[in-house]
C-alpha cells in the first residue's frame, strides 16, 4: 500500500461557508430592491449595474495581475460585484457611462487594492467610489429624473442606453427640463428657505413617508435585508443601530418643532438609509468585528447621517457617514473587546 494522505491540521471538515457564497447571498438579497427600483425609475439602473460590474471586474483583474495574485479564486469571490452593484444603486439611473468607470477606478484600485485587497480596505469601496464622483461631478450626480409616475418623459431601454452613452437626453429643454430635485433635496432647500415641512411635503414627489417610489424601494431593500438576517449573513446589530439611532435622534426634534423637522419615518424612508442600514454599513471588512462594536458603529452612521442632512451641505449624508465611521471602526473595536469566558 503506497498511498499518501493529507496531514493538514484540524479541523478536518470543510468550512461551513465561503466568501463567494456570502457575497452571492448579498447579491441575491439585493434583487427585490433592484426590481422595485426599475419599476419606479425605469431600466436605466440595470444598465448602470452592468456598467459598474464590468468596470469593477476589469479593474479587479488588472490589479490582481499587477500585484501578481492569482485571478482565481479572487476574481470569482464576487466581492467586486457587490461593490459595483451597491455603487450603481446610489447614482442617478441616467448618469453618463464614465461615472462608473471613474468610481470603480477609485473603489477597486485605490480603496481596495492599494490598501491590500480583499479584507484589508479601511474604507467601504463602494462609498469611496460614490463620494469621489459625487464631489467631482456634482451636476451629473444630482441629475435625477422623477419617478415614472410623475414624469412626462419615461425613457425605455434604448433611450436610456443612448442617454448614458451620449449624454444627450431627448427632451425639449434638455436635462434641466427632464430632471427634478429629489425628495430629500426638495426638503432641504425648502426648510432652508424657511418653508414648513408639512407644506413642503404636500408636493407630489412625496409619498406616505419618504419620497414617492423611494419608500417602496426602501421596503424591498429591507425585505432583502431581512433575508440576510434570516440567513445569518448579517447580524441585527448594525441595521437596528442605524435605523434606531435615526428614529431616536430625530424624534425629539420633530416633537419640539414639527414644522421645520421631518418626522422620523420620513428620514428612514428617504435616500439611501435603508440600503445603507442593511447592505452598506454591514460591510464586515470596513466595519466593527464584535456585536457591541457594531451597535456603536451603526449608531454612529445613523447620527452622522442625520447631522449631515440637518446641518450639512448635502441632502443625504449616508455615504459620508459610513466613511467617517469606517475611520472610527478600529478604535471602536479596541474598546469593545468581548468579555472572555471566566473573566
Amino acid at each position: 500500500m503506497t498511498r499518501s494522505f493529507d496531514t493538514g491540521g484540524a479541523p478536518h471538515l470543510p468550512p461551513q461557508t465561503t466568501v463567494a457564497a456570502v457575497m452571492l447571498q448579498v447579491l441575491l438579497a439585493l434583487v427585490p430592491g433592484v426590481l422595485a427600483y426599475t419599476w419606479f425609475f425605469g431600466p436605466g439602473m440595470l444598465i448602470q449595474i452592468i456598467l459598474a460590474v464590468v468596470f469593477a471586474l476589469l479593474f479587479e483583474a488588472l490589479m490582481l495581475r499587477w500585484r501578481g495574485w492569482p485571478l482565481k479564486p479572487f476574481i470569482n469571490d464576487y466581492s467586486a460585484v457587490v461593490t459595483a452593484v451597491l455603487f450603481a444603486l446610489c447614482i442617478p439611473p441616467l448618469a453618463p457611462w464614465w461615472i462608473s468607470c471613474i468610481a470603480m477606478l477609485f473603489a477597486i484600485v485605490f480603496a481596495k487594492h492599494l490598501y491590500g485587497g480583499l479584507g484589508q480596505n479601511v474604507f467601504n469601496p463602494a462609498m469611496v467610489g460614490y463620494v469621489v464622483v459625487l464631489i467631482s461631478f456634482p451636476q451629473v450626480m444630482t441629475a435625477w429624473l422623477p419617478p415614472l409616475a410623475l414624469a412626462d418623459y419615461s425613457p425605455g431601454l434604448m433611450d436610456s442606453l443612448a442617454t448614458i452613452f451620449t449624454g444627450q437626453i431627448p427632451v425639449a429643454g434638455g436635462w434641466d427640463a427632464a430632471t427634478q430635485a429629489t425628495p430629500l433635496d426638495t426638503l432641504k432647500t425648502g426648510v432652508d428657505a424657511g418653508r414648513m415641512v408639512p407644506e413642503i411635503r404636500s408636493a407630489p414627489i412625496f409619498g406616505d413617508y419618504g419620497g414617492l417610489g423611494w419608500e417602496w424601494i426602501a421596503n424591498w431593500f429591507a425585505l432583502g435585508g431581512i433575508f440576510l438576517l434570516y440567513k445569518r449573513t448579517i447580524n441585527w446589530h448594525v441595521p437596528v443601530a442605524v435605523i434606531g439611532s435615526v428614529v431616536l435622534l430625530s424624534l425629539p426634534f420633530w416633537l419640539a418643532d414639527p414644522d421645520s423637522n421631518p418626522f422620523p419615518l420620513q428620514h428612514i424612508f428617504s435616500g439611501a438609509l435603508v440600503l445603507a442600514a442593511f447592505f452598506i454599513a454591514t460591510d464586515p471588512v470596513s466595519g466593527c468585528v464584535s456585536n457591541r462594536g457594531r451597535l456603536i458603529f451603526g449608531a454612529g452612521v445613523g447620527i452622522t447621517t442625520l447631522i449631515i442632512r440637518r446641518w450639512g451641505g448635502y441632502p443625504d449624508g449616508v455615504a459620508f457617514a459610513v466613511l467617517l465611521m469606517n475611520m472610527a471602526a478600529p478604535l471602536i473595536d479596541r474598546y469593545t473587546r468581548p468579555r472572555m469566558y471566566g473573566e
Binding site: D6, P14, P284, V289
Partner: peptide, 16 residues
Amino acid sequence: CKRQDIMPCIRCGKCL
C-alpha cells in the same frame, strides 16, 4: 474533507 481556497480575512466576525 473538501479543502477550499484560503482567502483573506473579511472580518465577518463569525469566529467571535
